[in-house]
């Protein structure tokens, strides 16, 4: 992609990816611009005493919740939290998983064996249970804590994937040639192996982002994640869960937000997988 024309054809030939990417851009932009877009303070409770729930109206396009807070404003600010946690947790996952997989695949032998058996052990525990157990140990969660928790429980599969790719790349003649040229292991790993295993990592990261958003929502729903009154999509659903029949709008809109975001992320991941795979086989 050296110039504009090729960028344009790149997207034009992939309408699915373009749509998914565009939706994500919109979602992220709204989250960033939340203070500008939100009509009210997300935690303000104008009617503390009455706790007035109002249905969507001109004043409150998405209604208010049982604490009389504006749902739209909470949704916009909640997006910040959900995406922030999602993206940073994914960054943690990718960094740790890639480094671990690279180290295991590149060292080989007994080191590799031990590292992978360790991963097997971690993978035998379902992630949700692991997260809940750690939350219980940890007690109150800060946002940073949540990011670390989600990030550090998500890299096992990635490390296996990276390791397998590294083992494949290590067999190639261009790596043999780099060794023959006298390149250091470190240089080979980062200059020759890593760039060639990047495509599956990118795909994993994208799909992993969707998972983390759902997981964070789940935790917050259960009350372990982002603590009220700070809004997150998960705890917003929880707020409305007991009022589903009376005040559907409280839970429905954050629910829709999660579904849309995760679908866009997954669609992007899927089309990335296809197009990266395609360019690989062509090269």
């Amino acid at each position: 992609m050296r110039n504009r024309a090729t960028v344009a054809t790149f997207f034009r030939s992939r309408p699915g990816m373009t749509l998914a990417a565009a939706s994500l851009v919109v979602i992220i932009a709204t989250a960033i611009a939340a203070p500008l877009l939100a009509p009210y303070d997300p935690v303000a409770q104008p009617d503390i005493v009455g706790g007035n729930i109002t249905a969507p109206s001109a004043a409150h396009p998405l209604g208010t919740d049982q604490f009389s807070r504006d749902v739209l404003s909470r949704l916009l600010f909640g997006a910040r939290v959900s995406l922030l946690v999602g993206i940073f947790a994914t960054v943690v996952t990718v960094t740790v998983g890639t480094a671990y997989g690279l180290a295991a695949g590149y060292s080989g032998g007994i080191v590799d064996e031990v590292m992978m058996r360790l991963v097997d052990a971690f993978m035998s525990i379902p992630r949700v249970l692991l997260v809940l157990a750690l939350v219980a140990l940890w007690g109150q969660m800060s946002t940073t804590g949540l990011i670390l928790l989600l990030g550090l429980t998500g890299w096992f599969q990635l490390s296996r994937l990276v390791r397998a790719e590294v083992l494949g790349a290590r067999q190639t003649d261009y790596v043999a040639s780099a060794r023959a040229l006298g390149a250091h292991d470190f240089r080979i790993a980062f200059r020759h192996v890593l760039p060639n295993v990047l495509p599956p990592i990118i795909v994993f990261a994208t799909i992993g982002l969707g998972n983390v958003i759902v997981l964070e929502a789940g935790l917050s729903y259960l009350g372990f994640g982002i603590q009220p009154p700070a809004p997150s999509w998960g705890n917003m659903i929880r707020d409305g869960s007991e009022l589903m029949t009376a005040a559907w709008w409280v839970s429905l809109f954050p629910g829709l937000a999660i579904v849309t975001t995760v679908m866009a992320v997954n669609a992007l991941g899927e089309s990335l997988r296809r197009s990266l795979g395609r360019s690989e086989s062509r090269a």
Binding site: D173, Y174, A176, S177, A180, L181, P195, N196, A283
Partner: peptide, 15 residues
């Protein structure tokens, strides 16, 4: 030094 048989796998595609 070494020169390889397969002209496709012997050059790093990302360099």
């Amino acid at each position: 030094q070494i020169i390889f048989q397969d002209p496709f796998s012997s050059l790093n595609p990302r360099m």
